[in-house]
């Protein structure tokens, strides 16, 4: 098995994100498929973390951090990837061979990883105030929890990568990402477009 594990070197390839993701996908699928039913979540996780970052903190653009994500949320998203209800190239192929129990086990394992630590320079006070006011105005904390750490089917967003937050919010709003429950699509419906970057910057800096 060891020979099939993705090597950390793959992460350092400078040839653009697409190639990196493609390379890691091939490696991860190779790692996952041959013994699909025999592998435990612990055995699968390293291949996942090649992209999602060791300890669940993602370093690659476009790849979400998974640390301390609620187990139910991870399970739901993996289910959606497997059923092609959420379309995202690397994940659909990766989730395909996973059984219901695999999804549950991966959800549990991922929820135990440490939460991501906020990255990027600190926000100017005015930006922080604006972000915090918008979080209140749009009730983000009502669903995602007072500290935005998520619970049950609702994801942790605190400390998530800014680029990923930006993309998800844009995709809910445009309908490109339907969401399992319509709650997030509904909530995003009237977020003003120019508020999305402010929210993404602010939320990515929360612990």
């Amino acid at each position: 098995m060891a020979g099939l594990q993705p090597r950390p070197a793959a992460c350092r390839v400078e040839s653009g994100l697409k190639n990196t993701l493609a390379g890691l996908t091939v490696l991860a699928i190779a790692a996952a498929v041959p013994a699909a039913s025999a592998q435990t979540a612990e055995q699968r996780l390293p291949a996942c973390l090649a992209c999602h970052g060791t300890n669940g903190i993602a370093k690659l653009p476009g790849v979400p951090s998974l640390g301390a994500m609620p187990a139910d949320y991870v399970l739901t998203q993996l289910y959606m990837f497997r059923e092609k209800m959420r379309v995202a190239a690397p994940m659909n192929a990766l989730a395909e061979p996973l059984s219901d129990d695999d999804l549950r086990d991966l959800g549990d394992a991922i929820s135990k990883l440490p939460p991501p630590q906020p990255a990027g320079e600190a926000l100017a006070a005015a930006d922080a105030d604006h972000g915090s006011a918008l979080v209140n105005r749009y009730h983000c904390n009502s669903c995602h929890g007072a500290d935005l750490a998520g619970h049950d089917n609702i994801p942790r967003i605190a400390g998530q990568r800014e680029d990923y937050l930006l993309k998800s919010l844009t995709d809910y709003k445009s309908g490109a990402r339907p969401g399992y429950s319509p709650a997030m699509s509904e909530a995003s419906k009237e977020i003003q477009p120019d508020h999305i970057p402010v929210l993404a910057r602010f939320v990515s800096r929360q612990k």
Binding site: D100, R137, Y138, S142, C143, S181, A187, E190
Partner: peptide
């Protein structure tokens, strides 16, 4: 002023109300 499509549209700002949000069952 809150967004109209949000299920939380109309929610008063108090901590008890803030605990309520739509609940969905597990996907499996």
């Amino acid at each position: 002023p809150t967004p109209k499509g949000d299920p939380l549209e109309g929610r008063p700002s108090n901590t008890e109300a803030a605990k309520l949000a739509p609940v969905d069952g597990p996907p499996l």
